[in-house]
Design a protein around this nucleic acid. Structure first.
Lengths: 418, 418
DNA sequence: GCGGATTATTTCAGTACTAAAGTAAGTCAT
DNA sequence: ATGACTTACTTTAGTACTGAAATAATCCGC
């Protein structure tokens, strides 16, 4: 009714948005595009005409009509372009390449020692190997890191968990790889993926809660990931939940992550006698493996199931309810390695969640997505395709580069310059 | 760099924004206006010219220059227009009229029985009395209610605390008063006031935490109050803080409000022996009075000071720290009746807040504004002036009406039609 | 009292959008 | 078949913005 827009925009956002959406979601009618991009149908007619004349999109045949003029969906022409995503963890690096619609075409995992001085060189080498193995132009590389990132464009990361302080990831990788690079917090990247490929199709304001080594939260408001003043929003894991409690490496105590992050779960298992103290894993990666073994035992041990996973589910449900009471989202998505054991968490979660919700929100739906190992890296890759419809310029110049390359790829050129 | 805007906008937002800003903040230079409204200086030149030709604004003399062309501030001409705000509570109604810059010109408090079937008639009568007593055109009326409101325009309120379910406040008052009416949650209204008159001048992303009968929170992101999917965001009071704990009228237990809302404080005082059980106040309003008396005694009773107010401060600090960790704001503002006893809360708050913050945010500043009884109603009044620069149309048609009246008032007309 | 630096404002030409009204192409009930 | 209705898209004319370059008015050092 009262939309705003106007004036000059050198970077041709709307055409790129159309190309990006068609790439990510497949053929769409003009009306659907207009609604998804929140512009008038008239605008779609215009850019559609332009893109067709440039051979970048084409009309598919008609759709069946349910009483009314039948729609003629637009479809991307050419563009075998792909996107690349990287998940950075303390001990390894996961890299995926995917088509624009999120179909994974290639995955690679490398051991990674973040403490080495040449860590970024090694990372760049692993990424370059993937770039070269992909038989298609690559629009850009998304990088997901645990910790806060100042902006996707500049890509300066702070991460106590992997020991980065003011690490200039973005600039370094850009220089070494010669492709657009977008850096973001790993959970926020997952939220972006959810917006492009997941619940974003139905909801625009929701929370993405992750359980695994840490406990994280992505906050999506009206289709945009909320990053906070310094890119550090979403630290659900560090909400104080109990008085006293375990100290946390982030400098406080009694937070949710210290309770039910992987270390917290192991600690609880030891304290409750479910796990021998001398078997306590020493490397973080082993914690997840240990939890898988506990879960296997829990299948036949109801005391363990309830005393560990049920307990964790209740805490998670309590925190999630607090979030919902506070932020009033439309839904909650639960992701992360921990969801592999979700059937063990579920009852506890349901109880904690529903009993702590305000009455008016007691029936709020939540979704647990199936999880696999590529998801973190695929989330990072989604940063690239999402930058083609980055309305408020969060991706800056790197986003512009991606949009340029998208046009090139859609135009059928096999290779675009850096 | 990459702003967007364009096309037609029937409702002339920018001129109204300029008028509103000049009214609220006093004379400003074109450059300042451009920065505050996030438009180009060129646009301000144009609307400034237009508004001057219509006699609505005028140039003041030059400002002293510090090396450069001196600025010539624009100032509102005419417009003795005023704004009216109402705070609805279960037992009373506070109404204020104020100038556009927030200076209160008239206040009135009426006893109010929300349970009576003709409650809205009585409310409308009290408001009409103020409207008639104000010797100036009134741009509109803002109404702050405890509870969630679907939208400022339609004004349908849900408030368990005062027993409203689906109450059509907006429509009813509009029809009875014949002026634009904007309804909003009381804490969100306070956050809007903070944006217009308070910390909004220096920060754009911050939290407004209120302590009093309840515990509330307004979330301001990039200059906009975040309302949540159903207008129900900000319920900090219902974040679960302790296992078990007191049941809450909102249908759960152990939440922050049940701990340190006024009822919780009194309960704690009784349990700790600071207050005789048979003196427990029965009416909600008496709770705040009882707390004032406890505070007076605490001035000379360190055990009471620490055991009650220090304890409450620690809980508040803990919750605020959780919020800051989660939402990464630039600052936190603390408001509400409870701040009258802030010197008693402060030490506990400092301790709880700092010790639960993530290390990277440990030095986050917070502000405790001086409080007086008019603040709730003045916050509601701020809804009216804020609607003159309502970029994303949250105030709908009522906002358009306000902008029309503002133009009329600035044009020097004494009275505008409904 | 003159050039240079600095800041504020204006001019100008261009553009990406919009609303409103028109056109196209089907379904469905009679 | 006809016309009523529905939905999808297009045409048209207009506009509220923008960036870039030009202009204006001051201070400062010498």
């Amino acid at each position: 009714m009262n939309k705003t827009a106007s004036g000059s925009r050198p970077s041709d956002l709307l055409p790129a948005s159309v190309l990006g959406l068609l790439g990510a979601r497949g053929p769409m009618t003009r009306t659907e595009l207009a609604a998804a991009l929140r512009v008038s149908p008239a605008s779609i007619t215009q850019v559609g005409k332009d893109l067709m004349s440039r051979g970048m999109v084409a009309e598919l045949g008609q759709l069946a009509s349910g009483g009314g003029r039948p729609a003629r969906p637009l479809s991307l022409v050419g563009s075998a372009a792909q996107i690349v995503g990287v998940k950075v963890a303390a001990s390894h690096l996961a890299v995926v390449a995917a088509k624009l619609d999120g179909t994974v075409t290639l995955t690679r995992t490398e051991p990674f020692d973040v403490t080495r001085p040449d860590a970024l060189d090694l990372a760049a080498r692993a990424m370059r190997a993937v770039l070269e193995a992909v038989d298609a132009p690559v629009l850009g590389v998304g990088v997901g890191v645990p910790g806060s990132v100042d902006s996707l464009e500049s890509g300066v990361a702070d991460s106590p968990t992997i020991g980065w302080h003011n690490a200039q990831i973005g600039a370094a990788l850009r220089q070494k790889l010669g492709v657009p690079v977008l850096v973001e917090n790993d959970v926020n990247a997952l939220a972006v993926a959810e917006q492009v490929y997941g619940v974003g199709r139905r909801y625009s304001t929701y929370l993405v809660v992750t359980i695994g080594r840490g406990i994280g939260c992505g906050i999506v408001i009206d289709g945009q990931v909320y990053r906070g003043a310094d890119g550090g929003a979403g630290e659900l894991g560090h909400f104080p939940m109990v008085e006293g409690g375990q100290p946390c490496p982030y400098g406080h105590s009694g937070c949710l992550e210290s309770l039910i992050g992987s270390s917290g779960l192991i600690r609880r298992a030891v304290e409750a006698g479910f796990w021998a103290a001398d078997e306590t894993p020493t490397r973080p990666d082993d914690e997840l493996a240990a939890i898988r073994r506990l879960a296997a035992r829990a299948a036949t041990d109801p005391v363990l199931a309830e005393g560990l996973f049920g307990w964790a589910g209740r805490w998670l449900g309590t925190a999630a309810a607090g979030l919902v009471n506070l932020l009033n989202p439309e839904t909650v998505v639960i992701l992360g390695e921990g969801t592999a054991q979700w059937e063990l968490w579920e009852a506890g979660f349901e109880h904690g969640f529903r009993s702590k919700l305000m009455a008016a929100r007691r029936s709020l739906p939540y979704v647990v997505d199936p999880w696999d190992e590529d998801k973190w890296a695929l989330g990072a890759a989604a940063l690239v395709i999402a930058s083609s419809f980055d309305k408020d310029g969060a991706t800056g110049y790197q986003g512009e580069l991606v949009r340029e390359r998208l046009s090139g790829a859609a135009a059928g050129r096999t290779r675009t310059e850096v």
